[in-house]
Amino acid sequence: ERWLIRQGLVRSRTRGRALTRVMIISDVTTGQHLYKNLEGVIASGLSPAAFYLPGFTPGTTVAGAPIPVLGYSTSPADIMDAIRENDIHMVAVTNGHHLSPDQVRLLGWKLADAHISLIMAPATTDIAGPRMHMQPLNGLPLVHVSTPRITGLSAFFKRSVDVIASGLGLILLSPLFLVVALLVKRDGGPVFFLQSRVGLNGELFKMVKFRSMRTDAEEVKKRLMEQNEGNGVLFKMKDDPRITPIGKFIRKYSIDELPQLWNVFIGDMSLVGPRPPLVEEVEQYEDIAYRRLLVKPGITGLWQVSGRSDLSWEESVRLDLYYVENWSLTGDFIILLRTVRAVFAKEGAY
């Protein structure tokens, strides 16, 4: 019953109904970031309707956010006037609001009296809920953020799942491997394609896949660089002439990646993790992207279930970093389930 009600509510929200109008009190940069995130999850029901930015004239707008600025005063009374005049249902206070602690407390009281919700949005981003907990200290609410580490018992369980699942997968899929190997071998080239990838802590390893391209693919790639449809760092083409007919089929259903179960079995990779990068990709990394190398790369991951080749480079990095920062065994299991759906949907697979 809860699921059915939720589905109906989400449909209503995507059609612009049953939404909570949110006013954001912040500075420009943080306000834009919060606006973008709220707009991206309209199913939550939180709809950014206005800004309240100290120092901005009422009626103006902020770049990238087509909602009005309602005021600039830090007076709780003036803020309440703007809320009533614009039918605001919730106030989100985040960084750069310029309100004193006493003003925030008084505003909270006034909002409670008017039955209007108040949320405090910290500047930290991409942090899963279980990593955060609140601790009041002398009347001040402190948000503690823990850092998950794949060590000790957690590392043992993750590795155990990898070994057992990959071993069973190699045995059960061996008939399929044989059929695919015979089809790939028909054009005279090798069955498997071995490629150097960067793994845990920057260590190189040979990732194995069924060959899906012509044997001269690297030479042809140099002539196709101007036609790159990838995300800037990665080379991708939807109609890549280097891909063989059987290669197109096994890529469509991600069959070409199944031999990576061997990489998982011997410990180079994990079932779930960041996408294994090429050496030349790592050479273009900015400082923040190197955190992707703190865990083993995976056959699947958040990038696999969130668009695959259709993702921008920045979004791909963000998803991988989210995984690194918020890893859990439960999260791995959910990603594996979502992978099955993503493979059959075939979205972003080319």
Rank of each mutant, 00 (worst) to 15 (best):
F205Q: 08
R292F: 01
G247N: 05
R186A: 12
H98Y: 00
E280K: 13
G129P: 10
H144G: 00
M90N: 07
T330D: 01
I5T: 14
A92N: 04
Q7R: 15
V343R: 03
E257M: 06
G45S: 07
T61F: 14
M132V: 14
E218C: 08
L107A: 03
G199W: 06
A165W: 01
G108M: 10
E229R: 06
T60S: 15
S44W: 12
R131H: 07
T151C: 11
S174K: 04
T147L: 07
V179G: 11
G273P: 10
K206W: 00
K252I: 03
L111G: 13
A289K: 02
V305H: 06
T14L: 15
K158T: 05
K236L: 12
W313C: 04
S75W: 00
G96T: 02
A77S: 12
K209P: 11
D87N: 14
L46C: 12
T14E: 13
V163Y: 07
V208G: 02
K36R: 15
D113T: 14
L19Y: 11
L137A: 10
L38G: 03
E315C: 02
Q227N: 12
D187A: 10
M237I: 10
R11F: 12
V180E: 05
A63D: 15
G152Y: 03
S166R: 07
V145N: 11
P259M: 03
T29D: 10
G8V: 06
P190H: 08
K36M: 07
P297I: 00
K236D: 00
R223W: 01
E1R: 15
